[in-house]
C-alpha cells in the first residue's frame, strides 16, 4: 500500500463538508437510531463551522443526507427568516448545492429548531430536529451514566413521580415544551423543545424524524408510523397550549400555534408561529396561486 492510496486527491472541503469517515459514522448511528426508536445512540459528533448549541447535531444529520437534488427547508422557532435558520440554510447550500425552499410541501428535508410545521409531512419527507438536551431523565437524574441504566431497565418511575407531584402541587402538569414521550412502548424520549402542540404530530406520523444533539453527542429517531405517546395519567388528559381560538393578526389564520406579541396597551396580539404557512395564507388572500397543505390541526382541533 502507498500513502496516496489511503486518501483521495486534495480538495479544500469534502462534499457536504463532513469527510467520508465522519459521514459513514453518522450513517451507522442513524441506522441504529431508526432500528431502536427513541433510544439515544451515542456518536462522536464532529465539530462543524457553527457553534455548539446552535444546531450542530441537526446540521451533521442534514449534511449526511443531502444531495444536489435535495430540497431543504430550515426553520427556527417556526420561522424561515430567523437569523440562525438563514445562516444554516446558507451553509447547507454552499457545501451541498442543494436547493432551498420555504414551503413545507416542497421540502425533502426539513431541519428545525423547536417546531414541527403545521402542514402534514409525507412519507417521503425527513424532519431533522435540533436537540439541546437529549435526556428526558435529566431533571430527575443529571448523571448521564445513571440515566442510561434507568433507560436500560425501562425505569421511568421517578419521571412519573415528578409529573404526579406537579399535578398535586399545581393541579396540572407544568412541563411546557420538551414533553417526555414514550416511543414504541419502550423508550421515553424528549421530542426536543417543541411545544406540547407539536408532540401529537409525531404519533404515527407518515414522515421519518431524526433528532440529533451535537453538543451532547446523542442521536435518536422516530420512524414513520411509530407510536409516540406523551406521558400522561389515564384520568388527566394531555393538554396542548391554549391556542385553538387564537387568530393571526397578519394572515387571519386561526387555530394554529401562535407567537404572542405584547402590546403597548397591556393586551396581546398573536401571529402564526409557522411563518411560511402564514405567508401562504396572505399570498392566497392577495390572489396568488398557492397550495395550502392538509394540516394536523383543523380549527384548532387535532385531526385523527
Amino acid at each position: 500500500m502507498k500513502l496516496d492510496q489511503l486518501t483521495k486527491p486534495w480538495a479544500a472541503f469534502s462534499y457536504g463538508f463532513l469527510d467520508e469517515s465522519a459521514k459513514r459514522e453518522m450513517r451507522r448511528r442513524i441506522l441504529k437510531a431508526i432500528a431502536i426508536p427513541g433510544y439515544q445512540v451515542p456518536y462522536a459528533s464532529r465539530e462543524v463551522p457553527i457553534a455548539r448549541g446552535w444546531g450542530t447535531g441537526g446540521l451533521q444529520v442534514t449534511l449526511t443526507l443531502l444531495k444536489p437534488a435535495s430540497v431543504v427547508k430550515v426553520i427556527d422557532q417556526g420561522a424561515d427568516d430567523s437569523v440562525n435558520a438563514s445562516s444554516i440554510r446558507k451553509f447547507l447550500r454552499r457545501v451541498s448545492s442543494a436547493k432551498e425552499t420555504l414551503d413545507t410541501l416542497k421540502a425533502d428535508i426539513i431541519q428545525s429548531r423547536h417546531r414541527i410545521p403545521e402542514e402534514k409531512l409525507r412519507e417521503d419527507q425527513i424532519l431533522v430536529l435540533q436537540v439541546p438536551n437529549p435526556e428526558p431523565l435529566r431533571p430527575v437524574q443529571p448523571d448521564m451514566s445513571e440515566a442510561r441504566v434507568m433507560h436500560g431497565d425501562a425505569d421511568y418511575g421517578q419521571l412519573w413521580l415528578t409529573l404526579y407531584e406537579q399535578l398535586v402541587r399545581s393541579g396540572r402538569i407544568m412541563q411546557g415544551s420538551s414533553y417526555p414521550s414514550m416511543v414504541n412502548g419502550r423508550h421515553v424520549m424528549t421530542p426536543s423543545p417543541i411545544p406540547r402542540w407539536d408532540v401529537p404530530k409525531m404519533h404515527m406520523a407518515a414522515n421519518l424524524t431524526i433528532l440529533s444533539a451535537g453538543r451532547e453527542k446523542r442521536i435518536h429517531a422516530v420512524p414513520p408510523y411509530t407510536r409516540v405517546e406523551p406521558l400522561v395519567f389515564d384520568d388527566v388528559p394531555y393538554r396542548v397550549e391554549d391556542h385553538a381560538d387564537k387568530t393571526c393578526y397578519r394572515s387571519g389564520a386561526m387555530g394554529f400555534f401562535m407567537n404572542e406579541l405584547p402590546q403597548d396597551d397591556g393586551s396581546s396580539s398573536f401571529e402564526i408561529s409557522d411563518s411560511q404557512y402564514g405567508v401562504k395564507h396572505i399570498q392566497r388572500r392577495e390572489g396568488e396561486a398557492v397550495t395550502l397543505g392538509e394540516t394536523y390541526y383543523r380549527e384548532g382541533r387535532l385531526e385523527r
Binding site: N84, H114, R115, P132, G176, S177, P193, D242, F257
Partner: peptide, 26 residues
C-alpha cells in the same frame, strides 16, 4: 461549553410561550 453558553442568545420564544401557557393555566 462556550457554544451552549452563547446559544442562549438565540430566540427561545416558542418554549417560553409553551411555559407561559402552563403557568397562566395554573
Amino acid at each position: 461549553a462556550s457554544g451552549f453558553c452563547i446559544h442562549f442568545k438565540l430566540p427561545h420564544y416558542v418554549t417560553f410561550q409553551s411555559s407561559l401557557d402552563a403557568i397562566r393555566k395554573v
